[in-house]
Amino acid sequence: MPWSRNELAMRAAKELRDGFYVNLGIGIPTLVANYIAPGMKVVLQSENGMLGMGPFPFEGEEDPDLVNAGKQTITQLPTSSYFSSSDSFGMIRGGHINLSVLGAMEVSEGGDLANWMVPGKMVKGMGGAMDLVAGVKKVVIVMEHTSKDGAHKFKPRCELPLTGANVVDLLITDLAVFSRPDRQAPFQLLEMAPVVTLEELRSKTSAHFKA
């Protein structure tokens, strides 16, 4: 039984540690904020210029000058601070953010990530994703194990244009979790979703990994 979107977010939240500064991408990564362990202090960074992102506002209290990187209305906390985009990416590029959770279209066995472009089809742009994977200490990817038509997404090489080369540390899919201790090491299977067998996992994965 594959993990649900919320279960993926819950699994990614296990990577958080007390005192971490964290940047969450759009989509499932955003849900990770709902599963921060009680009592753990995690500061969420929004790359458009805020540290200490608060929850969504109560109805009627939305402020158009206060949005996150997904352009959603948010709130500030007593600990919040605001800054420019160049300061924001200084934090990101400079290695001051402990962990980032992002979505993906493809991940390669060497840790390459593709999540921003489908040539000739999707033209949206990379936003801050290339900076995040280049600068954040630990990059966690959350994605569906295969595409809707069954095509493999964890494969020997990415076919789509890269967001970053050799940047993924932990891969969480709806079927399994793969990690590597450093960026020279191969991915190691860590966990599998309930009822998923190694045989099924291998049949849906063309990337090499240690089981």
Partner: peptide, 30 residues
Amino acid sequence: FNPQGTLAERIRAGGAGIFGFYTRTGAGTL
């Protein structure tokens, strides 16, 4: 397309009279 942080820093550098800078962002990509 410029990566967002690269775009921000290119503008900052432009305004500060800096010709250019070397960044890890985008290495090995288009």
